[in-house]
């Protein structure tokens, strides 16, 4: 999976580091002082690095819990996000991380305990029902066998039932969850695009069928699950989504789905320009775009009608009250 492992000297002997190094002992190990000297340096090419992605083990300093952008998430309670990892092992052509980071390497912060302390502070300082998103700058579960992220944070949130954790993922790495008792305030939110879009623009990901199967197993085991239909990509017929919904709800009990969201493709203009420079040959990105207040989205004829039709077919399966449209 990775071509090499970089390790900050500071975490060289951290137990989580040692466990990961043991798992990847055949890979070159390279020591560094700070992850930024590799991750943030200039003259890197994200696209090329995806072919030989490395893992960087580091210590997260400074703020670890941040307010989630407005329009991101469900309900009116305050939302936060925290990133134990930067970047993703998957390669989705529409992903904003390609424009956000200079490097395609994955940074894993091993000091989970420090994240937990700050989350605990935020929980006690805020109202009940606060949501904590873990999959904003990464996929929450994709590296689970190595990172043990869910193995650590799910029991932590089990002790803080007044807060909610969203594990946003496209991964089928659910073994550690299935080994635990379901935790009512930990929601596994699986992202989907249509089958055709997944085949065309998602590389190295579990297939749509496997994602549905994994989510089904989690639901069977009693885990709260959610559905994320983001990004909705242009020129996808509502019928294609209707077929996807049929497949999903043939396996899942719709009445027990925590929430479902939809959201069109959108990306900060600066990120989009960077992605376009990386992939000048990518038909998806060459489509007509519009820029509204610094956010780029694809032009879609009759967008509201298109979205309406698509969401109507979703509401044939779920209660509209459990749906939200993500706008950020």
């Amino acid at each position: 999976m990775f071509s090499a492992i970089y390790v900050e000297r500071e975490v060289r002997d951290h137990p989580r580091t040692l466990a990961i190094l043991d798992r990847y002992r055949e890979l070159p190990l390279i020591e560094c002082e700070r992850y930024g000297e590799i991750f943030n340096r200039k003259a890197q090419n994200f696209r090329m690095q995806k072919d030989s992605q490395a893992l960087i083990l580091a210590h997260k300093h400074g703020r670890k819990v941040l307010p989630a952008p407005g329009g991101h998430g469900f309900g009116a309670s305050p939302s936060h996000y925290f990133s134990h990892m930067l970047n993703c092992i998957y390669d989705c052509r529409y992903c904003f991380l390609q424009g956000m980071y200079r490097s395609a390497h994955c940074v894993l912060f091993v000091n989970f305990e420090d994240f937990a302390d700050m989350i605990a502070q935020a929980i006690s300082a805020g109202p009940p029902g606060q949501m904590f998103h873990s999959g904003y700058d990464c996929d929450s579960l994709a590296l689970e066998p190595a990172s043990g992220f869910a193995r650590f944070f799910v029991p932590f949130f089990a002790q803080h039932p007044q807060a909610m954790l969203e594990l946003r993922t496209k991964s089928t790495q659910i073994a550690s969850l299935l080994q635990m008792k379901p935790v009512p305030n930990c929601i596994v939110a699986m992202s989907f695009t249509t089958e055709a879009a997944a085949q065309r623009w998602e590389r190295d990901l579990p297939s749509v069928s496997k994602r549905i199967a994994a989510l089904g197993r989690l639901q069977d085991a009693g885990w709260p699950i959610a559905l994320r239909f983001e990004p909705l990509l242009p020129e996808t017929e509502p019928q294609e989504y209707a077929e996807l919904f049929e497949r999903i709800f043939a396996r899942l009990d719709a009445a027990r789905v925590h929430s479902a969201s939809t959201g069109v493709f959108r990306m900060p203009a600066g990120y989009f320009r960077k992605v376009l420079r990386l992939y000048p040959d990518e038909p998806l990105l060459a489509r007509e775009t519009r820029n509204e207040n610094g956010i780029v989205s694809f032009r879609q004829r009759d967008e509201e009608a298109w979205l309406g039709e698509l969401e109507s077919s979703l509401f044939r399966h779920i209660d509209p009250a459990s749906h939200y449209r993500c706008t950020n």
Partner: peptide
């Protein structure tokens, strides 16, 4: 080579690690 340190300047460089 996957890490270069220039002893005089202390500058470090990180050549890629292909498979």
């Amino acid at each position: 080579i996957n890490r270069i340190e220039h002893r005089r300047s202390g500058e470090r460089h990180w050549p890629p690690v292909p498979r």
